[in-house]
Amino acid sequence: MAAKKMGLQTVKFQNPPSILATASIVGPKEGQGPLKDYFDIILNDNMYQEKSWEKSERKMLKEAVEMAIKNSKVPYSNIEYFIAGDLLNQIISAGFAARELGLPFYGIYGACSTISEGMSLGAKIIDGGFADNLVVATSSHYCTAERQYRYPLELGNQRPPSAQWTVTGAGAVVISSKPKNPRITYATTGKVIDMGQTNSNDMGSAMAPAAVDVILQHFNDTKRTPDDYDLIITGDLASVGKDIAEELMKWKGFDVTNKYSDCGLMIFHPEQDVHSGGSGCACAAVVTCGYLYKEMINGKYNSVLLVATGALLSTTSIQQGETIPCIAHAVAIENL
């Protein structure tokens, strides 16, 4: 058996890779939310002086990566990989940002789970001895996601209370072999779980079982319990999905009520008219890069299990009546 493998789906890093620096950029609406003081840049305008929302999204992604590298003080030429993905078809935000950045590029797709998928892969590359510094990033944009997945912005339709608001923003993480806190200690790779949900306006309910599955697998594989963590945080289940996830974990005998949170619930105030909460690749990414990283440096949290969640649907699959397959990846981030 592989030396670093633990249980069925988890690896324990031998020399836990460090998170050397992060950067987060968010749109104006996110900049009015409860976490506004944690973000590095808050845009005044969703267009970001570009000609299209797609261009605006990739500019955020590129600038978040450049800022994270700058913050890490690692010379640009020493960044060995750029791992990124986003929600747009053929992950054009990531691909086009990589064109500008000129770094060796792995494009990944995990929908809104991209940030923890990327961190998991990045940490494996570092601990495997294949690189010393790399950067993981992802982005999403309300206006690009809405037109791809749902309706034109000016269409006068009503959103149901279970709908979520795609976060406009980008987050980037520099992962390094340098010994420095916080570190990525474990990574549990999720399986695709499909509990037969078909409502694309209720992603929280679709994704909750995937999040619970990977969290329970993580505890199983590592022999850890919720007591080992100060905070267990899912990506974008929002209020509906978080409620269901708590219930499912209770069924399985894990009570996480006091230490469980969700990025989609934290990023907006309830009165910001976002219905159930935030979603999108950037949701988990900016909360991780802004809030979590800074509060781990400050010592508020010393041990966090980040479980970003993604729904692997497309407009085609929904129109053809398919159910929604979902994924979640868990990474443990700790101050050692």
């Binding site: 209720d202 309910s205 209020s239 509906v240 269901i244």
Partner: peptide
């Protein structure tokens, strides 16, 4: 699971 969702869905 669908029954749980129906119960929890706003």
């Amino acid at each position: 699971y669908q029954n749980l969702v129906n119960l929890k869905k706003p």
